[in-house]
Write a protein that binds this DNA or RNA. Structure first.
Lengths: 396, 396
DNA sequence: CCGGCTTTGTCCTGTCAGTGGAGAAAGTCG
DNA sequence: CGACTTTCTCCACTGACAGGACAAAGCCGG
């Protein structure tokens, strides 16, 4: 199949495409109910969309007591590629135009190997997905990187944990390789978009999405729009001071949140605890694997290891204190916790909640749910697909 | 004169009104350059606005080498009332439709006297402004209160420092008394709007406006729009923890920013220092007045008093630490410092800057101006007038 | 099988917003 | 006084859109 190149010609068409994406197949009449256009005008726009091939009419729906309606849906052959580059792994997924995941691959990989090596990996994963028959090509791709991005250009800027990526033209390079439009964003923003599209944050206008993985970041959604900040570094909360004169951080300061709690910090603390003989559980795991990760701590905690539970609780306290400040400041309607360490589950969540509810003002916390993300590792790739679909489903 | 009741009939008219408000008088041709409409269409819309009386054509401009143009301007008889209720004083100003202040009154008053007493005061000040011939009536009023507001209804909610105001229908009551439309917002948000309209934040899309007065608050502007949060309490940063296990705060917690630095905290610390004999300068002033305020500390500091300078510096450090976190989180393009304690001037500013530049990431601070507000005590009333004019200059 | 009823989709006409060109009005300048 | 410029007005043409009439296609009960 030849890839789609059409874009909606006007705001009406854009609106219709997004309704079909978010609400699934619909009859013309159902669309008319949602879009405040006359039936005639609607019919015209739908016909034009049918001509472009962006949507198709396949078959008739069951009757509801009258003439049967045509099923209007997004072209089922459209394919988006969602790429989520984490600090230590790469996720690549194919979705249809309704952003349903058709195939998903995950591969451990260190971003610090640089853009060239990572791109090679991403492309080979995309090729594998294609080879398995899920796609013949891609109509668009979204990609998230673990650092600040100059959004309009799709270029990472001054990323602390990914040297070598600074200024690398991610958007342009990937667009060239894949032969389709590409949008680039920070991975945390994409997670927020994912949860907003298909996760816990559906229909919430203002929320925060805290991602705790190798580092810590926070997606900010205000009025339904992702807030990226003046230089694309909004949400970079890993280096907010959590502990005065605390642990030294890679950034040069002391007491940064990330230095006290994150996947990396937790692993480090666990190794320390094991070596000091504080926990047999952790020591055993360290001996077995030669190293420890957040997953080990989670497992040890699940097995009742007190030291691990303490580590998690303490980290949750630190994180909760910082989030409490952000809640006072931003007054979100929802806080989503996600990322690798969500395996720590309810021990972590309880600690965070306690701190936030204790420290923030009642008005801000009165009706504030603090919940785990619903989509887990797929939030990023869904958000990435959503990013590019938002772009392609807007008037050119 | 009968008050204006007309509103723009469509988006074009709204756009034109705002251009005239922000850019002053213009010819039809100049308007046409800014609005992307054909001359004919523009002429039609301008004529309709002339019919409504919202704008007037008074006289001809000097020729620029051809036919002289008509001066189109907002009706110079339009009057807005801007009200800024602070914790300890009330500001009331009259503006024309271009939001220029025609008259401004300030009166000390404690908000805790409750809405009835404060309203009486506001109305008498408004009456005095009318009596002095500045206005025959008001076409709209904006009012800021020092606490969270449920914005759509214009009702304060759970305001910590203004008991008795909770749920009081400010908008409705004032609208009834003045006989014109009224909008209500948090005072800090209005300060931000004021600085955005006519102050240092002109043409900045994302910025923070920290107001340090009796308490501390922060106006948040994202994408040119004020962010009010899920329950209207966004920007309430006074109770973010600045010092672990620090001073007890009225809110029940310890170490809140406001407990360590604010007009009230500074006065308290100054009295303490004077009583402990740490500063002759302050002790002298305390003896003279029987009390000390932030103004005294500012004066003492200006006179070189080391203790006062230390107090200011320490407060600036605390505030700077909190702002540093907010800068990392929000990544603003500008930080404005305003409110009563800006009399502390550059000592304060320097301390804040030092902390922010030291603690926030380079990308977020690289090109981040941290400046004092330009409008001083008029920021609030200008912002209030702007609020209601934004409302009235939008299609009904 | 037929006629009333419902729902869906199509067609057509009238209205209104908006464009762009012609030209009138009112200047400047040499 | 005439050539040129700028501003504003008028008018005819286009296209977006609403809303009603109507056709198509189903249901159901008799």
């Amino acid at each position: 199949m030849r890839r789609m190149t059409a874009r909606p010609a006007n705001a009406h068409q854009a609106r219709l495409l997004k309704l079909l994406r978010d609400g699934g197949p619909n009859s013309r009449a159902q669309l008319g109910d949602q879009v405040d256009l006359s039936r005639s005008k609607l019919a015209v726009e739908v016909d034009r969309l049918l001509e472009t091939g962006l949507v198709v009419a396949d078959g008739l729906a069951a009757s509801r007591g009258g003439r049967r309606s045509h099923n209007i849906r997004l072209n089922p052959e459209l394919r988006f590629l969602g790429v989520d580059i984490g600090a230590t792994s790469v996720d690549v997924a194919v979705t249809n135009a309704e952003l349903e995941i058709l195939g998903h691959l995950n591969q451990p990989m260190d971003v610090r190997e640089g853009p060239v090596a990572v791109f090679e990996q991403v492309l080979s994963m995309a090729a594998k997905l294609k080879a398995s028959g899920l796609a013949e090509g891609f109509d668009g791709a979204g990609i998230g990187v673990p650092g600040p991005v100059r959004f309009p250009e799709g270029v990472p800027v001054a990323p602390p944990i990914m040297p070598g990526w600074d200024g690398f033209p991610v958007r342009e390079a990937l667009s060239q390789e894949l032969g389709c439009p590409v949008m680039v964003d920070n991975d945390v923003n994409l997670m927020a978009m994912g949860e907003m599209h298909a996760g816990v944050a559906r229909s919430v206008g203002d929320f925060l999405c805290v991602k705790i993985g190798t580092g810590i970041g926070c997606g900010i959604v205000a009025g339904g729009e992702v807030h990226r900040g003046a230089t694309g570094s909004a949400g970079d909360i890993g280096h907010i001071q959590a502990v005065p004169d605390g642990r030294p951080c890679a950034c040069g300061n002391r007491g940064c949140l990330e230095a006290h709690f994150s996947g990396a910090a937790l692993a480090r603390d666990a190794v320390e605890a094991a070596e000091q003989g504080l926990s047999e559980e952790l020591a055993g795991r360290l001996e077995a694997n030669g190293t420890l990760s957040a997953v080990d701590v989670a497992a040890a905690a699940a097995a009742g290891d007190a030291t691990s539970l303490d580590l998690i609780r303490e980290g949750g306290d630190r994180t909760g204190q910082v989030i409490a400040g952000l809640v006072s400041f931003f007054n979100p309607g929802l806080v989503v916790i996600g990322g690798g360490v969500t395996g720590l589950g309810h021990t972590l969540l309880a600690a965070i909640r306690t701190q936030v509810y204790r420290q923030s003002l009642p008005l801000a916390t009165g009706n504030l749910p603090i919940v785990l993300g619903e989509l887990g590792p797929t939030a990023g790739v869904i958000g990435a697909a959503r990013l590019i679909s938002d772009h392609l489903f807007s008037p050119a």
